[in-house]
Amino acid sequence: MAVLELQNISKHFGAIHAVSDVTLSLEPGEVVGLMGDNGAGKSTLVKMIAGNFRPSHGTMRLEGKELVMHRPVDARQHGIEIVHQDLALCDNLTAAANVYLGRELLIGFGPFGVLDYASMYQRAAQLFKELKSETRPRDLVKQMSGGQRQAVAIARTMLSKAKIVLMDEPTAAISVRQVAEVLHLIRLLRDQGIAIVLISHRMPDVFTVADRVIVMRRGRKVADKPIADSSPEEVTGLITGAIEKV
């Protein structure tokens, strides 16, 4: 059964139709590459799944149940995690603090709870180990390489039992070797049965790791097919409009 279904989703900002009539579904343990030019509606689509925007029209279903979200926090509660483009990490905090940001572990009761540093360090270290990352939980994020920061951002999504992980350009602005690391992390998540939406401009990344590719152009879905049946040339054509639709 599909973990997430979008049916005829549209989003208008006044007269601007950012997303028009998009229908798609996500299976557990599937990596879907979401591609399209700037302004094609990828980000708007993802922001609706992430609870930032409410769709103007259409319905979303999570595991068969209708999904209505008012805030980004709602998405997290439903098991939808987002890795943001700029990674949304706090440079001044440790890796563990970033992993737990917004859902810290406490010792004590209610308003008198103090941070449970030991448990958070321990669990974060465990997550980094699972990710086979050399990131140390006590290191400050500002001292980290791009790949390590990615590991922190991805570890955040593993803290709760996420069903869907949305990744916005996770391989932009990092070195070639780190890209390989990130793609490896994506596979690790997929092997845990998590559905992953990978938004990327980088054709090779999508073709390396994705099972399926969805192409958007001018707010509409113009392609949705297994990666094996497509080619970078075809996707490029779809993105630019040289190929109308498949």
Partner: peptide, 28 residues
């Protein structure tokens, strides 16, 4: 000092101060 360095509120102060957007994305 306890509030700043040992409480969730204190940690959020640091998070908001450095990267308010990230803090907001984290549900703060």
């Amino acid at each position: 000092g306890v509030v700043l360095h040992r409480s969730v509120f204190g940690r959020y102060l640091f998070a908001v101060g450095k990267n308010e957007e990230a803090a907001r994305y984290s549900g703060i």
